[in-house]
Design a protein around this nucleic acid. Structure first.
Lengths: 341, 341
DNA sequence: GAAGCGTCGTGAACCGATTCATATCAGTGG
DNA sequence: CCACTGATATGAATCGGTTCACGACGCTTC
């Protein structure tokens, strides 16, 4: 592939001038600029990124560390980030951690070694082990946390308000006449999981309903755990009339569990979910859910990261909280008044 | 961040020696090696990739051009590729084209300009315009096509056998007693779409059933088109007893259409799908579908690409075809014998 | 016509690695 | 004691850009 030297030679100018043309410097005359541009076209010349990076110490690469691209929430996030990044001439490198701390550490180390210009991070549960995150934040490289924020660290973030979203959702269940509402929540080491649980509790308290710990089941945001916990919940002695599931993947497990127990939704058990449910709208019943603006989260994450990159590390962290939306389906229809059994 | 020079100075050796230690050269004595390693640790030194790339003209970056990460087939593909790539010390850059030719061209140009070491490509429908692909293949950089192969180009690929998978699936419908089977296929500019249609036709021919063009509807592999075409199919005058949908996203649209028309599946209309259906198993009925080894496709793609990179461009293209698996659900139960109406 | 001032271009230093011809040195054999 | 060998270590050239001090040149101005 052609180099800047060849371009310079063919255009009869110095490499410095070619570089100036490339960078759009104003100190190049129209004549020369056109001449150089023509040569660039004719040679199909593309500047070597490595050389440029070496000199400028910018890679125009952004890293994105997520838990699992296979969970439908993340493709949207990634897509939003990618669309925004590409517009600004950045490329995105995504890595999956499966919510394992070790893999998070490794992924971050790799991205750092590559000198990416910035990192998006969806933190894994860490049980208080945040050393590597502190180091990361101390290391110059701009970081924006998406979806989840790690405890007690000052870092830019874009998230949705899990407390408010859950409140909205559980209030809806209450308004439909439900009083015994089970909840399948994620790993409580995660802020997001705790927020969603808090929203549930808040909504109940508003109605002076006591919180029954026997109705609360904590899993890990994966399909399998939704399945197992929902079975436990429904086979237990609490007999809830509704279940609030805290993410889409667990909802799939929950729905399967309900089916296997030969219960009908919503007649026997109502279901409401925080997070979009895959394939929702293509099967019965349509599930009531809180939809998060995942695409936007990714998109705005890029804007935040870039502004941080230009503003420098000095300023206070910016925390953007996006609203979510309650989408009411048939899975939470009004409960017949004849209560009891 | 530390440079090789600082490491050399602190260890009291030359940069060449440090480089030799890094690259694991055998001409370094044990003593020196250990001394250098200690300094590397203490400085938390990581070689600068840009500098290395500049010299070696390898980026250890792989590009992946797919249609849309938001379609659940692709996350699996990407995940497989990423898992394989990371093991070999490569990083993956994915870009989405939404099946638009212009965006494919742009994405490929960007990746080329970045000098990625290799490219995975899921081609977009191109209506015969393959100039950019020919140029790409001529340009040295190794390419592996995944899932779909472009017409008449000699290129390495990893795909599934769409003909055979569809045959299997449609034979199953036939064995369940269906004779009038509608088909919702993708953009027929794509080899994959044509293969799946061919499989359908083959299966019918085996049973000496005439192909009725009025039962064939071609869309674009997206949810919306599955919805619209299924409505057309079911509201038309052909009255099929089953529908064969050629990918998962269109299947979601099809299922929605069936619901809106207040038809029951499988009683009124059986459904079978080529491709996994999102959320399948969590709702009724469980959909009969042909599952493609998407993860494996990505994984093996990396192996093929790397072997191509080391073998050089000379050899003949390798075409790996992976088997798919028919997973029988309740959406295709046996048709009651009393035929007619 | 000398001095001064913009406007454009030039070219060398530099970024941080890799690589290879060359230097150093201990040991060996004649 | 010298030549030679093998094992190690060195350092300069190189990759392809960016950047900036400086030079060349044409125009004013007095």
């Amino acid at each position: 592939m052609a180099t800047i030297k060849e371009v310079a030679r063919k255009a009869g100018v110095s490499v410095g001038t070619v570089s100036n043309v490339l960078r759009g410097s104003t100190t190049v005359s129209q004549t020369i600029r056109e001449r150089v541009d023509r040569v660039i076209q004719s040679l199909d010349y593309h500047p070597n990124h490595a050389a440029r990076s070496l000199k400028t110490s910018q890679t125009h690469l952004l890293g994105m560390v997520i838990s699992d691209i296979t969970n439908p929430f993340f493709p949207q996030l990634v897509r939003g980030a990618e669309d925004a990044a590409i517009q600004k001439n950045y490329l995105l490198i995504a890595s999956n951690t499966d919510d394992q701390l070790e893999r998070e550490k490794r992924a971050l180390a790799v991205l750092r070694a590559r000198r990416v210009d910035g990192i998006f991070l969806v933190v894994a549960p860490n049980g208080g082990d945040t050393e590597h995150l502190k180091k990361l934040l101390a290391s110059q490289i701009p970081v924006v946390c998406l979806d989840r924020v790690p405890e007690g660290l000052a870092v830019d973030s874009v998230t949705t308000d899990g407390v408010q979203g859950s409140e909205m959702c559980v209030r809806h269940l209450l308004s439909m006449g439900h009083r015994k509402i089970g909840v399948i929540v994620g790993n409580l080491q995660l802020q997001t999981a705790r927020d969603r649980l808090r929203g549930y509790e808040n909504a109940l308290k508003e109605q002076k309903i006591a919180i029954d710990p026997g109705l609360i089941f904590a899993g890990d945001f994966r399909r399998e755990s939704g399945y197992l916990l929902t079975k436990q919940l429904l086979l237990g002695n609490r007999k809830p009339t509704a279940v609030f599931v805290c993410n889409g993947m667990m909802a799939l497990g929950a729905l399967r569990a309900i089916q296997e127990l030969d219960l009908r939704c919503p007649e026997d058990i109502a279901v409401a979910v925080f997070d979009e449910v895959p394939a929702n709208g293509s099967f019965r019943p349509e599930i009531t859910c809180v939809v998060q603006p995942a695409y936007q989260m990714g998109y705005q994450g890029v804007e935040l990261l870039l502004s941080r990159m230009s503003k420098g590390a000095g300023k206070k962290p910016v925390q953007i909280v996006l609203p979510s939306e309650l989408r009411i389906g048939d899975s939470t229809r009004r409960r017949p008044l004849r209560s009891g059994k």
